[in-house]
Amino acid sequence: MSSPKEIMRENLWTNNPIFMQILGICSALAVTNLMINTLIMTLGVVFVTAMSNLTVSLMKSLIPRKVRMIVQTLIIAFYVIIVDILLRAYLPDISRALGPYVGLIITNCIIMGRAEAFAQSNPPVLSLWDGVTSGMGYMGVLMTIAFVRELLGFGTVLGFPVLPSGFEPWIIMVTPPSAFFLLGIIIWIGKTIMNKEGATA
């Protein structure tokens, strides 16, 4: 069994859900035009991954094998709807900005992937930790993309203007295709660094 430190390193870097496992790409494209939206959305993912991992791990001995996947989906959907309800009630503006994407957290393959690959066969607290770190790995990449897109597309960082007034916004950065380019570049850089690490280690 891996130690918490190893799990963190794996989920944040060497086995990062986005650039190593190439999971959860769809949402990476859709919600990364503003950092604040990305932050809230990825916090939602961290919460859902952590809680569903915890729940699956707690219940793993009770779940019949035949309905394992469907129960996992049920658990994930449950937490996603909770997040959606909370946002609607307490952060209406962000809920409106995120639109259908909160509901779409359900379809994020990372969550199901962790429940199936980790929580099914590990103790609850470690599973919770795995969920948190996986979500953070996802958050790290998305926030990087959102940072570049918001900076170049609007000239702002978290809504604060940081570039001089003569700045010419990059229209393409506001539109989803730019996330394709940026994600590709991040995967490219990430793998190049990893290959170098691998060569020296």
Binding site: L62, V67, V71
Partner: peptide, 18 residues
């Protein structure tokens, strides 16, 4: 835990609860 009655009962109960 792999029997049919348990599976149905469990699924029903867990859905109801959530």
């Amino acid at each position: 835990k792999q029997s049919l009655p348990y599976t149905i009962g469990f699924t029903f109960f867990i859905s109801f609860l959530f």
